[in-house]
Each structure stands twice: as structure tokens, then as C-alpha cells.
Amino acid sequence: MTELWQYEFMQRALIAAVLVGLVTPVIGTFLVQRRLALLGDGIGHVALTGVALGVLTSTSPVLTAAIVSVVGAILIELVRVRTRTSGDVALALLFYGGIAGGVLLIGLAPGANNATLTSFLFGSVSTVSEQDIWIVGALAVGVASVVAFYGRELFVLCQDEEVARAHGLPVRFLSVLLAVTAALTVVIGMQIVGVLMVSALMIVPVAAAQQLSKSFRVTMALAVGIGLVSSLAGLPTAYYADLAPGATIILLALALFCVAVGVGAVRKLRPRHGAGVPGAGTMPQTERGRVT
């Protein structure tokens, strides 16, 4: 297997896969906690418009996808908060507008074809360039910084928006921040697993981790581990079996979910030690305007 990593495109794909496996489950944990599991799908469709815009203007599709995705994430929050449109309808607007804009713009791009669109829809390791790695790396650092600085506040927001507001937290700012961070996360993973499946890598590892733990911190850590295993195992599996890398990674994550369900079921049959201890394994409580 060592000869596989001698190819430069596989080395770049490996770096991208590590970043994807690390970052996507972290943001996915917050989205699942706030019941916004489909947000990544909506943003993924908007990212497709950004990709097509990059192809049309002969600039970096990853960079334009990041910009357009951030704008789309902000718009969905504004639509949800300032109008009577519910969250699911706002997401539907993203779905349809994003895919329509992407198909329209890619048709106008000179030299573009269905293969160009397909590589971003379903992922293609051969399209990851050195410039893409730098951009994705910068986005990953940005996402990690947001979680490091605002992780506790985002946790409270995702638990209960009214509680967060009662504690003086900037709910609207945090909501937009979470949406923007999710948008950047979609862009990070789109070249490896594709814009149509990147949301699965944000959600499936979290769903698997929830079968094994009820603690927010432990769930996030387990989800990151599952995401990394899926990404790193999926690349060589796809290469040697001549399979689509994105689909292989997602199916491995789903297989790990099935394993986690089995392990969780067995654990429930065992006597529970330490049951009834209040607050065991949970995140810290909040005080006025901050999280302790």
C-alpha cells in the first residue's frame, strides 16, 4: 500500500481527507444538536453555484464556492429570522436555487462539460490541486478557531435558543456564525466526497457516536475518530477497488454507524454503573452572558 502514497495527487488527497475527517464531524455535532442536519445539504447545493462561478470566471472553484456558500448561509438565517418562512422552507429555497444556479452557470462556462460538474457533485481526488490544499487548510483553521473560541456558546445555543438568550448570549450572531462555519465545512469536504454527500460526513459519524455516548464532548471526539477512519480507509479502498472515493467514504461511515448501533444495543443490556449521578458527562452550565 505504500506505493499508493508516492503519487502526488494521492498525497494531496490524503491531506484533504484528514482535514475533512477532522472538521466535518465537529460542526456536524452542533448541527445535529440543533436539529439542523439538513443544513449541510442546502449549503452544498449553494456551493455548486460557487463552483460553477469559479469555472465560468476561470478562478479557483474552491474559493468562489467558499464565498458563495457563506453568502448563502447568511441569507438563510436572514430569511428564517426576518420573514415568516420556516427553516425547512428556507432550506428548500437553498436546495433549488443552488442547484439551478450551478447548472445554469456551468452551461455558460466555455470548455466546461458534465464531467466538470460531476467531479464536484460526487468528489474526485484527482482534481485536488496544491492551491486547493492551501485554501482548504486555511478554511479548516478558520473553522477550528471558531469552535475553540465560541464552542461553549454554540453548545448552549444548540441546546436551547431561549436559554441562550436568557443568559445574554448574542443568539443571532451565534446562529449566523454556526451557519457560516457549516458553509466553510461543506467547502472543505466537497472535493473529496462531493457537494451532494459532504453533509453525510457531517451527520453520519455524529449519529454513530451518539449510539455510544450521551456526553457532548465524548460524542464529538468519537465522531471525529469515526470521520477520520472513514476518510483514511476510504481513499485506499476506493483506489484499489476502482470505486468512487466519496461514495466509498460515506458507505464506510454508514458501516461504522451499524457497528455502533450494535455496540450500543449490547451496552444497554449491561447494568449501568453511576446511573443517577446528576450532570455526569455533560457540558458545563451557564452563567450570565457566558458559559462556565
Rank of each mutant, 00 (worst) to 15 (best):
V89I: 08
V62K: 02
E162W: 13
K268H: 09
A208W: 09
A207Y: 06
L39Q: 15
Y239R: 11
S213Y: 11
V147Y: 00
A115F: 12
R34H: 05
Y150N: 01
V141C: 07
L252H: 03
M1W: 14
R165G: 08
R152K: 12
L14E: 02
V186S: 02
G227P: 04
I249V: 10
Q210I: 12
G189D: 01
I192L: 12
A73R: 08
G168P: 13
L53R: 02
G264H: 01
I133N: 11
R172G: 02
I135C: 04
A112I: 09
A52H: 09
Q159K: 10
V171T: 01
L117H: 00
L53M: 04
A16N: 03
A166P: 14
G97F: 01
L39C: 14
F122T: 01
I99C: 15
R172S: 05
L169N: 03
S58T: 12
L19H: 11
L93W: 13
M220V: 10
A17Y: 03
A223Q: 08
G279C: 03
P284K: 09
N113H: 11
G246S: 06
L94R: 01
E162I: 14
E153C: 04
E8S: 10
A17V: 06
G98T: 12
T85P: 11
L222N: 13
Y239F: 14
A100S: 07
Q159N: 13
V20Q: 01
L38C: 01
L48R: 04
I203W: 08
L38N: 04
T2H: 09
G111S: 10
T127N: 10
S231H: 05
V23C: 00
F216R: 10
V81I: 11
D160S: 03
L243N: 07
S86R: 05
P170F: 09
I192A: 07
L178F: 00
F120E: 15
A208Y: 08
L139A: 04
R272F: 10
D41C: 06
S60F: 02
V156M: 04
A255D: 14
F257G: 15
C258T: 15
V62Q: 03
V103N: 11
P110M: 09
V146T: 00
V55Y: 08
L212A: 07
G50D: 10
T118H: 15
F216I: 10
A265R: 09
G142T: 00
G72L: 15
A238V: 07
A208Q: 07
S86Y: 06
I74F: 08
G40S: 02
V193R: 08
G276W: 00
Q33D: 15
A90I: 14
A144W: 03
L243Q: 09
